[in-house]
Deep mutational scan, measured.
Amino acid sequence: QIGDLVNIDLDLEIVQSLQHGHGGWTDGMFETLTTTGTVCGIDEDHDIVVQYPSGNRWTFNPAVL
C-alpha cells in the first residue's frame, strides 16, 4: 500500500521477465535492485509505482516486490 517500503529480492533476469507488460525494464532501473523504495502509487492496471531516494519513480509488476 502507499507509503510501504519495498525491496526487490529477485535475480535480474526474473525481474526483467516479470516486467514485460508492466512498464518494461530500462538500464536506469538497476538502482532498484540494491535500494529500498517507497510505494507512492498504484496505477489503473494495479501495477505499483515506487519512488527511490534518487528521485526516480519506477512502475513494477506487484510480483516483483
Results as ranks from 00 to 15, higher is better:
residue 1 Q to P: 12
residue 1 Q to H: 15
residue 1 Q to S: 14
residue 2 I to Y: 07
residue 2 I to P: 10
residue 2 I to G: 06
residue 2 I to A: 05
residue 3 G to R: 02
residue 3 G to E: 01
residue 3 G to A: 01
residue 3 G to D: 03
residue 4 D to V: 06
residue 4 D to Y: 15
residue 4 D to K: 08
residue 5 L to G: 04
residue 5 L to Q: 14
residue 5 L to N: 12
residue 6 V to Y: 04
residue 6 V to G: 08
residue 6 V to T: 04
residue 7 N to G: 05
residue 8 I to P: 01
residue 8 I to M: 03
residue 8 I to T: 03
residue 9 D to L: 06
residue 9 D to S: 13
residue 9 D to N: 14
residue 10 L to M: 14
residue 11 D to E: 14
residue 12 L to R: 08
residue 12 L to F: 12
residue 12 L to S: 08
residue 12 L to Q: 10
residue 13 E to W: 08
residue 13 E to M: 10
residue 13 E to H: 12
residue 13 E to F: 05
residue 14 I to P: 01
residue 14 I to Q: 14
residue 14 I to S: 14
residue 15 V to P: 02
residue 15 V to F: 11
residue 15 V to D: 06
residue 15 V to S: 03
residue 16 Q to H: 02
residue 16 Q to I: 15
residue 16 Q to C: 02
residue 16 Q to D: 07
residue 16 Q to S: 06
residue 16 Q to K: 13
residue 16 Q to A: 10
residue 16 Q to P: 05
residue 17 S to G: 14
residue 17 S to T: 12
residue 17 S to R: 15
residue 17 S to K: 15
residue 18 L to E: 07
residue 18 L to Q: 07
residue 18 L to W: 07
residue 18 L to M: 12
residue 19 Q to V: 03
residue 19 Q to S: 02
residue 19 Q to M: 01
residue 19 Q to L: 05
residue 19 Q to A: 02
residue 19 Q to T: 00
residue 20 H to I: 11
residue 21 G to N: 06
residue 21 G to Q: 13
residue 22 H to S: 02
residue 22 H to D: 00
residue 22 H to Y: 03
residue 22 H to A: 00
residue 23 G to F: 03
residue 23 G to T: 04
residue 24 G to R: 02
residue 24 G to C: 07
residue 24 G to V: 04
residue 25 W to P: 08
residue 25 W to M: 03
residue 25 W to C: 05
residue 26 T to A: 14
residue 26 T to K: 10
residue 26 T to C: 15
residue 27 D to N: 10
residue 27 D to W: 08
residue 27 D to T: 12
residue 27 D to E: 14
residue 28 G to P: 11
residue 28 G to A: 15
residue 28 G to M: 08
residue 28 G to W: 06
residue 28 G to T: 10
residue 28 G to V: 09
residue 29 M to T: 04
residue 30 F to T: 09
residue 31 E to A: 00
residue 31 E to K: 00
residue 31 E to Q: 00
residue 32 T to H: 00
residue 33 L to W: 06
residue 33 L to T: 03
residue 33 L to F: 11
residue 34 T to F: 13
residue 34 T to E: 14
residue 34 T to C: 13
residue 35 T to Y: 12
residue 35 T to K: 06
residue 35 T to V: 06
residue 36 T to I: 06
residue 36 T to F: 08
residue 36 T to P: 11
residue 37 G to C: 05
residue 37 G to Y: 09
residue 37 G to V: 01
residue 38 T to F: 10
residue 38 T to Y: 12
residue 38 T to V: 15
residue 38 T to E: 13
residue 39 V to S: 03
residue 39 V to P: 10
residue 39 V to A: 01
residue 39 V to T: 01
residue 40 C to W: 09
residue 41 G to S: 13
residue 41 G to P: 04
residue 41 G to C: 12
residue 41 G to W: 12
residue 41 G to H: 14
residue 41 G to E: 14
residue 41 G to Y: 12
residue 42 I to W: 14
residue 42 I to N: 12
residue 42 I to C: 09
residue 42 I to K: 12
residue 42 I to F: 12
residue 43 D to H: 11
residue 43 D to L: 09
residue 43 D to T: 10
residue 43 D to Y: 01
residue 44 E to S: 15
residue 44 E to C: 14
residue 44 E to T: 12
residue 45 D to C: 07
residue 45 D to P: 04
residue 45 D to V: 07
residue 46 H to A: 13
residue 46 H to Q: 12
residue 46 H to P: 02
residue 46 H to F: 13
residue 48 I to T: 09
residue 49 V to H: 04
residue 49 V to R: 04
residue 49 V to Q: 10
residue 49 V to N: 03
residue 50 V to S: 02
residue 50 V to F: 04
residue 50 V to I: 09
residue 50 V to R: 04
residue 50 V to E: 09
residue 50 V to G: 02
residue 51 Q to R: 12
residue 52 Y to S: 01
residue 52 Y to N: 07
residue 52 Y to R: 02
residue 52 Y to W: 01
residue 53 P to R: 03
residue 53 P to S: 05
residue 53 P to E: 10
residue 53 P to Q: 05
residue 53 P to D: 05
residue 54 S to F: 07
residue 54 S to V: 01
residue 55 G to M: 03
residue 55 G to K: 02
residue 55 G to T: 05
residue 55 G to W: 02
residue 56 N to S: 08
residue 56 N to I: 05
residue 57 R to K: 15
residue 57 R to S: 11
residue 58 W to F: 08
residue 58 W to A: 03
residue 58 W to V: 00
residue 58 W to G: 02
residue 58 W to P: 03
residue 59 T to H: 11
residue 59 T to C: 13
residue 60 F to M: 14
residue 60 F to V: 05
residue 60 F to I: 08
residue 60 F to K: 02
residue 61 N to W: 06
residue 62 P to W: 00
residue 62 P to Q: 03
residue 62 P to S: 03
residue 62 P to K: 04
residue 63 A to T: 11
residue 63 A to P: 01
residue 63 A to D: 14
residue 63 A to W: 10
residue 63 A to L: 13
residue 64 V to W: 00
residue 64 V to K: 03
residue 64 V to Y: 04
residue 64 V to S: 06
residue 64 V to F: 02
residue 65 L to P: 09
residue 65 L to G: 05
